[in-house]
Amino acid sequence: MITNIYTLSRKEGWQRWADAPARVRPELLAPKQITKLGEDARADYNDARHDWHANFGILKTPQLAAIHDELDQIVATNRQDPDRIRGAAVIDALPGLGKTTIANTFARDFDRAQRRRFGDLTEEGHERLPVFRVGLTSRTTLRTLNRMICEFYGHPGTDRANAAQLASFAVDCVISCQTRIGIIDDLHFIDPNRRDGIEVSNHLKWLANELPVTFIYAGVGLAERRLFAEGLTGDNAVMAQTARRWTRLELPPFHVGDQAGRRHWQSLLKATERQLVLTKAHPSMLVDLADYLFARTTGHIGSFITLITRGCYKAIRTGAEKLTERLLDTIRIDEASEAARYHLQAGFQAGKLTSYRNTG
């Protein structure tokens, strides 16, 4: 809906998201009840279900819980005085595994706790903003990074300042608003082999030195891109400060190679089933499709949620009101999942793979 358009890269959008109450799950109506609804009422009910299925909340997967625990430990122990360097966390994983979601939800919980404990205003009367968040782009430079931080806070001098002035404004905003966590998303856009990439990487170290915050970075394939080595090679790589300051948190996809992996996959399916509002859904609707759903999504939570969301939309629109293999076969998702689908399906059909728990 148009009223829900906002961005987490501005303080107003972040606060709106952080303060938003939990969504109310639409009532599950029986098929006969839906047929008795008028045309407008039925359209409104279906629209509410579409909105719910696209936003039914964060599934607390084992991966999310594990990284939240790690982040909590890192943030809680970063109590150093301003003259000492705080360690940073970096969530490094393949696309579609929920890096951004994990970082944002952890920071949202922290934001709520800080404002609940200390109030919405600082003692000096400034807005208390426990978290700032920015997302990098492929053209991020030192100046644009500073500008994005200032834009999050809504600093009035953002448009006419140079890089040094923007850096000073950013420091003032963080300190005045008593910010404690800074999220830098899409860190993989920094190329440590390019001049502007080295400048941004060095500037991140400067910000870590100057700001009393814990940085949480998220990106794709950061180790492979040698971001931790800052582009240095051979013996020079030991001179890289990043690898000593950042704690790398890996985020694996779901797998079905052992009992624990199969148990986690089944738990995800059961938790998702409980969220769906389809009139002809039945217990184990998704669990019965465990192999199929894994083959379709390769165990990537982002691909899985996309398939379920689009499947629910079509199930409601067509009147099927349940998810079946036949219906889901008509839904296309990301190309990476589609490319791996038939190889995985062959493994399941040959008995080399299974996502069902061994109860024997």
Rank of each mutant, 00 (worst) to 15 (best):
N78W: 06
E224K: 15
F215I: 06
G221R: 01
Y342I: 06
V24I: 14
L293N: 11
A93R: 03
I331C: 11
R341V: 02
Q275K: 09
I149M: 14
P82M: 13
R117N: 04
I183N: 05
Q63L: 01
C312F: 00
V287N: 09
G154E: 04
K270Q: 14
S168P: 01
R23I: 05
A20E: 13
G234W: 01
V90I: 07
G87N: 12
T3P: 00
G197W: 00
E27H: 02
R86I: 03
T214D: 12
A218H: 01
A48S: 13
A89I: 03
R116A: 15
C173Q: 15
P253G: 12
A281W: 02
R296Q: 11
L71G: 08
L136E: 05
R248Y: 00
I305E: 07
W17I: 02
K99N: 02
D185H: 00
L64E: 04
E12F: 01
E210W: 02
K60T: 11
R248H: 00
E123P: 06
A163Q: 12
L269I: 11
A290G: 14
R23N: 12
K280F: 05
I2S: 14
H255R: 14
H50E: 10
R245S: 04
A107W: 00
E321V: 05
W17F: 15
G219S: 10
T61F: 06
